[in-house]
């Protein structure tokens, strides 16, 4: 499994292909439905430095606040990415992201955006909230907590060996399209079979 340090250089991203396992170390940001809409309504200068060259993680964590005010991720698996399909390509381009972490894969608009901007879709194991929370070493800060609530806020986190798999790359490769096409062929065969 390749170990990569955030922020990522474009040439490294363009070298990686579907099927590669990657462990990420460094700083990333979380963001999901409300965040993506908000990121496009205006250029959000305050969060932009935390996104440039890094990745956005589709995650709505369970967070515990200690008595000293610091936060800790208690559970932090990925959420379904396809809901961000209308926004993702533009968010990647506008903020210079090198990747997106989520689950379930994304559509053709995002796939084209990955090729254009030089970014990857990285799949984390859905539901593996403890394994992934363990890789989150520190919560640096949070944006829009009051407005969006805990799951939808943008959390800036430091991660160590955060495990993901490349399932969409910069060459229009998508494991999700491959699997879907295969399963549709199988369905046709199973529906043709006698009852």
């Amino acid at each position: 499994m390749a170990e990569l340090r955030l922020p990522l250089a474009e040439e490294i991203v363009r070298d990686l292909e579907v099927g590669a396992g990657v462990e990420l170390t460094g700083r990333m940001i979380t963001g999901r439905d409300a965040a993506h809409k908000w990121l496009l309504e205006d250029f959000r200068e305050e969060v932009a430095p935390f996104m440039e060259g890094s990745v956005i993680y589709h995650c709505g964590p369970v967070v515990r606040q200690a008595d000293d005010g610091t936060y800790e991720f208690v559970a932090a698996g990925p959420t379904t990415s396809i809901r961000e399909e209308p926004y993702q390509a533009e968010v990647i381009e506008k903020y210079g992201l090198r990747g997106v972490i989520g689950k379930g894969g994304m559509g053709l608009q995002t796939l084209a955006g990955l090729e254009k901007s030089g970014a990857l879709y990285l799949h984390a194991v859905g539901g593996a909230a403890q394994v992934l929370a363990q890789a989150v070493k520190k919560v640096e800060r949070v944006f829009m907590l009051e407005e969006f609530g805990v799951p939808e806020a943008l959390w800036v986190i430091d991660v160590e060996k955060f495990p993901v798999m490349v399932t969409m790359d910069t060459r229009r490769g998508s494991l999700h399209t491959e699997v879907e096409d295969f399963s549709k062929q199988q369905l046709e065969r199973l529906l043709a079979a006698p009852a």
Partner: peptide, 21 residues
């Protein structure tokens, strides 16, 4: 493998298996 590791970890820590509870 990751899923089963996660199940063990959640039980040991008495913490949510998945963040979407």
């Amino acid at each position: 493998v990751t899923i089963l590791d996660n199940v063990d970890l959640a039980k040991a820590k008495s913490a949510p298996i998945c963040q979407d509870t």
